[in-house]
Design a binder for these strands. Structure first.
Lengths: 339, 339
DNA sequence: TATTGCAATAAAAACGTTTACATATTTAAA
DNA sequence: TTTAAATATGTAAACGTTTTTATTGCAATA
């Protein structure tokens, strides 16, 4: 038989009663407001401690509609992608330091879900939002921006909205990778793209083409394949590529999930990396080095992206009139043994 | 100059005014309560739609302290561990279907952080909580259980609290793996354990010893190493093992992060899997097959764990007096080429 | 002494809901 | 026709805060 140990509901009222004082005074003590008698303050502080009183965050948010609820929303396109996990870690670390909690919503690239979560987040009166929109014209996110809610976009910008953005120099990152491949002597370099209407995918393709150009290599249409940024399309597209009558001698994969998929195919075919086919991936993973052979990859500073985004967001929350900023972080080529 | 497009704050009141009706009636329409005139209902529904009214979840939660806030808390020990990501996906999928939002808190094995997040979660009046306690005597979680908040524990139980639990048959899973190794003829089988005071780590060790026994293999102390369940300790402990004067011919790794770490070491040493050393991991990953060689591993049904946990939780929320249950899910040996 | 100003506190309103209770209207039963 | 019950709606309280406004007591000034 369960002891019906009903809620631990202590409130300003409880504390106030015990202290023989009004709730307003207790509230002032809690919030370190001025104009409260030092003795009263000490007395109340003791009672607060004894009662283990903690303010109710829900009431707080209801009262202060758009501030100091200490709650941030995070809207992520794909939680299975280690990149976003790293971003999330970055966000979380700074949020924790600044006493913010996070509502994390993963919409799995599903726009209906994205919409629902955006509604929920607003309805929860979050103080601000970090989001990776589905694409640069994501009207759903734009609408929220218009609402005045502080927002920072990561990984993908927004084209018709004035909003803080933190991303990476995708074009240059891709260039570096493909240029490295070309300089190593690979001639038929393929590109497996993620969702093509993602700005990042397009930028990476541009970088890929730049590098081909710079090395006087032709760009064969058949060597460029467009997928959906997920593992399965890496498997499938890589398979198509390797079944070509003239297959590529190197593959540049558009993100980490695609890389993993491509690796699956390559191993399944019993091909040797890098002798039969070389591979270089966009997105590094902390265990890229555990792969065999260790993977050469373009490292996005995912953790830093999250960290910067959270800092930007909190700064905007406390100072809403600051002009918006674009942060473009640098990538780094992690040279290992897959090419 | 920003258009100060202040909040999209529509409320019952707004709708009520427009409809020339009291907020109570609107509320009844929103909640499909009976006893409202069909015509009124239709009229109000139209206005709700026009105004794009959505109920304020915060006010709702404040009002209904312990029910129908449609918010669940999730407390995760390590968001870098793909296992928990899969669990989270399972949770999220059912939460989404039942219109629950999630506050996800990752405490990175840090008990201070765990405490803070537990406080926050309670303060946010979540309807229920899914948690993986730091260990089976986790007093912080036990205290919350005592509070009456619906809780489901995943991956790890709680010893002095009557609480729903969803976990996996760790002992049997480990047995299967090590038994497979033994039957394949490996004689010196090592075990790299995660945090030793985690029930799951201990259970897995038990299974490991069972299998050694069952195959009349001696258990060498030097072949059992205890770490902290993370990548780095996999790297280090595997290195120690391989530097032994009589190194193991096979390694059973206690979780996926450790596996990845061990692989790093093995590759760094230029050892060939499985000829020089075989490896079998606890925890499968969707890209285990992308490894070279594809990894043989004990698959925990992580997604299902999350799914079950969320279902259990929601069932408990709607029916708090149901007796608690222990769900023990089966593992599966995914045989590939690493041993 | 009367007036002002300040410090400390209390009172009350507001945030957006749900719901118990009250009221008014309609319908059914006697 | 009267009464009772059912239906439809309104009123107001409550959830736990923060904050504006009001009140009190007291010291300082004129």
């Amino acid at each position: 038989m369960a002891i019906e140990n009903v809620y631990n509901k202590n409130s300003l009222k409880k504390v106030a009663e015990k202290a023989g004082v009004s709730i307003a005074t207790v509230s002032r003590v809690i919030n370190n407001s001025p104009n409260v008698n030092p003795e009263t303050r000490i007395r109340i502080e003791k009672i607060v401690k004894d009662l283990k009183y903690t303010p109710n965050r829900v009431a707080k948010r209801l009262r202060n509609r758009n501030a100091s609820g200490n709650l941030l929303g995070v809207l992520i396109p794909d939680i299975q992608n280690p990149f976003y996990i790293e971003v999330l870690r970055g966000i979380e670390d700074v949020a924790y330091k600044k006493k913010y909690a996070l509502i994390v919503c993963n919409f799995s690239q599903d726009e209906t879900k994205e919409k629902l979560y955006l509604d929920i987040l607003q309805s929860e009166s979050v103080d601000g939002l970090i989001a990776a929109p589905t694409h640069e014209h994501d009207q759903k996110v734009i609408n929220v921006v218009k609402t005045g809610l502080p927002i920072v976009c990561v990984d993908r910008g927004l084209v018709d909205a004035d909003v803080d953005v933190v991303l990476v120099d995708n074009r240059k990152g891709a260039f570096t990778a493909v240029d490295y491949l070309a300089k190593k002597g690979y001639k038929r370099i393929a590109y497996i793209s993620g969702i093509p209407n993602l700005p990042s995918s397009r930028e990476r393709e541009l970088g890929y083409r730049d590098a081909l150009d710079a090395n006087s290599l032709p760009a064969y249409d058949e060597l460029i394949r467009y997928g959906d940024s997920r593992h399965d399309s890496g498997v499938k597209l890589c398979d198509e590529l390797l079944n070509l009558s003239k297959p590529p001698d190197a593959i540049f994969t558009g993100n980490n999930l695609i890389t993993l998929g491509a690796l699956e195919t390559i191993h399944k075919k019993g091909l040797k990396i890098p002798d039969d086919v070389a591979i270089i991936g966009f997105d590094d993973m902390y265990w890229s080095i555990s792969l065999n052979p260790p993977l050469t990859a373009v490292r996005q500073p995912a953790y830093e992206i999250g960290k910067c985004a959270a800092e930007q967001l909190i700064s905007r929350i406390t100072n809403p009139d600051r002009p918006t900023s674009n942060m473009i972080l640098k990538t780094e080529l992690m040279i290992r043994n897959s090419c």
